[in-house]
C-alpha cells in the first residue's frame, strides 16, 4: 500500500468509527444467538448464558481480582508493545533506507515472520528463565518482524526532497527524526500499532498461560484446569472490552491528532 492509500484507509476507518449502527446490531445479534443457544442447550457448565458470564464479571470486579490480573496483563502488553514498536521502527527504517541492510536482514525477517509464536515463547522461558523479562521479551520478539516490515515499506516512500532540505539546512539528527522522518511514518506507525496491539495481547495471554502466576492468561489457565467455561468467558470478555477501549480512547485520538495537518487543508 502506498502512503496515500494507507492514509485514505485510515481516514475511512476514522469516519466510520468502530461502532456504526450495523456494528451494534451485529454484536447484539451474536449475543442473542449465544443466549438462545445457551437456553436451549441447558448445560451451564459447557455453555453458560450471557447473564451468568456477566454476573461472574461483576463478582470478579467486586473482589478486586479482575483489576489486579487485568492490570498485570495490561502492564505486559504496554511494555512489549513499546519495545516492539521501537525496535521494529529502528530495524524497518534501516532496511528501508539502506539496500545493503535490506539484503542482509530480509531473509532473517522472512524466517522471523514465519516463526511460530509458541516456539519463541518456549525458548525465551528456557533461555531467560520463568520471569517477567522472558515474558515481555517473548511477546516483543513476536511482534518486531511485523512492525519492521510495515515501517520498511513506509520508509521506502519517504520524500527524498525533504531529506535534501533537512540536509541542506544541516538539521541535527534528533530534529530530522522528530520533524521530518517520523511525521511521514505516522500512517504506517498507526497501522503497525493497531495491528500490533491486537496481536500482542493475544500472545501475552499465551505467555501468561504457560509461565506466569498473574494476569488474565494465568486466570484462563486456572479456569481451564477446572473446566470453568463461565470463568474463561468472563476473563476473555473483560479483556476484549479493555482492548477496545484502548483502541478507541488512545490509539484513534492519537492518530487523529498526528494527522491533523492533512485534513485542515484550505
Amino acid at each position: 500500500m502506498s502512503r496515500h492509500e494507507v492514509a485514505a484507509a485510515a481516514t475511512r476507518a476514522r469516519r466510520r468509527g468502530p461502532w456504526g449502527l450495523e456494528g451494534v446490531v451485529a454484536v447484539a445479534g451474536l449475543l442473542a444467538l449465544w443466549a438462545v443457544a445457551a437456553v436451549i442447550a441447558d448445560q451451564p457448565r459447557i455453555l453458560p448464558t450471557p447473564w451468568a458470564v456477566g454476573a461472574e464479571i461483576v463478582r470478579l470486579a467486586g473482589t478486586g481480582e479482575l483489576w489486579r490480573h487485568m492490570s498485570a496483563t495490561f502492564g505486559r502488553v504496554v511494555a512489549s508493545f513499546v519495545l516492539a514498536l521501537i525496535a521494529g521502527t529502528g530495524i524497518g527504517v534501516l532496511m528501508g533506507r539502506r539496500a545493503g541492510a535490506d539484503r542482509w536482514l530480509n531473509p532473517l525477517l522472512v524466517i522471523a515472520l514465519n516463526m511460530p509464536a509458541l516456539v519463541v515463547i518456549v525458548l525465551c522461558y528456557i533461555w531467560i528463565g520463568l520471569n517477567e523479562t522472558a515474558a515481555v521479551t517473548a511477546v516483543a520478539l513476536n511482534k518486531v518482524p511485523l512492525v519492521a516490515v510495515m515501517i520498511r515499506d513506509g520508509t521506502r516512500a519517504l520524500s527524498p526532497a525533504l531529506d535534501d532540505m533537512a540536509q541542506a539546512f544541516r538539521l541535527p539528527l534528533a530534529d530530522r527524526w522528530r520533524h521530518v522522518i517520523l511525521p511521514q511514518l505516522v500512517p504506517h506507525l498507526a497501522s503497525a500499532a493497531r495491528a500490533g496491539i491486537s496481536l500482542i495481547w493475544k500472545i501475552v495471554l499465551v505467555v501468561e498461560f504457560l509461565g506466569r502466576s498473574t494476569g488474565v492468561g494465568f486466570k484462563l489457565h486456572m479456569s481451564f484446569s477446572l473446566f470453568d467455561v463461565t470463568g474463561v468467558l468472563a476473563w476473555a470478555l473483560g479483556f476484549v472490552v479493555l482492548m477496545l477501549a484502548i483502541d478507541g480512547l488512545v490509539l484513534r485520538p492519537w492518530e487523529r491528532r498526528a494527522s491533523r495537518w492533512r485534513r485542515d487543508a484550505a
Partner: peptide
C-alpha cells in the same frame, strides 16, 4: 549556506512558524 529549491519543500505537518524555527 541556505537553500531555496525549485519547490517550496516545507514541512507539511508543521505550521508556518515552525517551518522557520526548526530548519533555521
Amino acid at each position: 549556506t541556505a537553500p531555496v529549491f525549485q519547490e517550496p519543500l516545507l514541512l507539511p505537518w508543521r505550521d508556518a512558524r515552525a517551518n522557520l524555527t526548526i530548519p533555521a
